[in-house]
Amino acid sequence: MDQYVLSEEETDALKKPDIGLLYVLGVNGQLLMHFATMNGYSWPEYIQAMRDGVEHYGPVREGLYAMIDGNGAT
């Protein structure tokens, strides 16, 4: 990952991986979905990880979803 310019928080989130934090940092779900699947997440686990991320780290900070309330489907 050295070839990419990443903050410590981003590097840690990718290595762990912390799907919830990656979502909060602004990773697009069309990519994050597959990254989560690669790391063994089922669909409900992936959705829950993003919800947990928002609860733990706060609203999405950047990117396409910064405007979504992130509260999840009702």
């Binding site: 697009n28 069309q30 993003m50 979504i68 489907a73």
Partner: peptide, 10 residues
Amino acid sequence: HWPCTPDSGK
């Protein structure tokens, strides 16, 4: 649709 987000399914 809100694909691949916590709102997925809405």
